[in-house]
């Protein structure tokens, strides 16, 4: 039975519409009123994923490193635009900060995985690089936006403390230390909890996918363990790098808190 896996046919996909039909029926019966959105979502899922499939199969046929690097840059840019739109933060140069921090994080984490841990040959082998880069970018962006938002909240809350410390002659970095630590801790706790509970409640999506695709669970587990460790490093790096840029935006060159920019942020 090993290394055999079930190939899903387009007919199977069509049959899966029974789930949509069921949901639709329930919505109608309960007058939930989301039927139209459901149908749009159903079609979009189909189109987007099919398109992605073709795109990926094209990408995986490429053999030049500069194609892959270009693709990475594009992924970072698209993710940053998404993150920038999702959460309007009153941080000057916020978009540039997202792109820069995400870029640095990807280079560091992906570089470590590809060259040091897995030692993939060639290093831009797309079957490894693209999915892992996707995870780094997704997780890094999520963590960064959460942390940035939390940091601004902390800074507003601690405005008096920050100015008191500055007024005594403290450097900006010292005055914001408490806010930085709170924000990073808050962002890391879910990631660390994840390390505690992974596999106990449900299988991580990537591992489930690998097993469905016929990969020996013992091998899938190895991948997942590496991913879990990578996950936490990605979060901490993305947070620390982005916050290093972000906190400076709230101070002038004369080490004064830019209260007006801070107050522009919604609570």
């Amino acid at each position: 039975m090993s290394n055999q896996f079930y190939v899903v046919s387009w007919w199977d996909v069509l049959m899966a519409l029974v789930f949509v039909a069921l949901t639709y029926g329930i919505m109608r019966y309960w007058k939930i009123g989301l039927e139209k959105t459901l149908l749009v979502g159903t079609v979009r899922t189909f189109l987007q994923l099919t398109l992605m499939g073709y795109l990926l199969s094209y990408i995986f046929k490429q053999e030049s490193w500069y194609f892959m690097v270009g693709l990475l840059i594009l992924m970072v840019l698209v993710a940053s635009i998404e993150g920038y739109r999702r959460q309007k933060l009153p941080v000057p140069h916020y978009f540039l900060i997202l792109v820069g921090s995400l870029g640095i994080t990807v280079v560091l984490v992906l570089g470590t995985i590809l060259k040091f841990i897995l030692d993939v040959e060639p290093w831009y082998y797309p079957f490894v690089m693209i999915p892992i880069a996707g995870m780094i970018i997704g997780n890094g962006l999520n963590s960064m936006t959460l942390t940035a938002n939390r940091f601004i909240g902390e800074l507003k809350h601690r405005e008096g403390e920050v100015e008191m410390l500055l007024s005594l002659g403290a450097p900006v970095r010292t005055a914001v230390h408490g806010s930085l630590v709170s924000a990073i801790r808050a962002a890391l706790i879910p990631n660390i909890n994840n390390l505690m509970t992974v596999g106990l409640v449900q299988l991580p999506g990537m591992m489930s996918g690998q097993i469905l695709a016929g990969i020996d669970p013992l091998i899938a587990v190895r991948y997942q363990i590496i991913i879990m460790y990578m996950w936490i490093t990605t979060a901490v790096l993305a947070d620390v790098i982005s916050l290093t840029f972000i906190y400076r935006q709230f101070f002038t060159a004369r080490e004064q808190l830019r209260i007006n920019i801070l107050r522009r942020a919604e609570a």
């Binding site: 100015e163 008191m164 500055l166 007024s167 005594l168 002659g169 403290a170 450097p171 004369r254 080490e255």
Partner: peptide, 12 residues
């Protein structure tokens, strides 16, 4: 500016 603030202390 830090030396200055040290010399010109403030109580809020």
């Amino acid at each position: 500016v830090r030396d200055l603030r040290q010399k010109v202390g403030m109580v809020f």
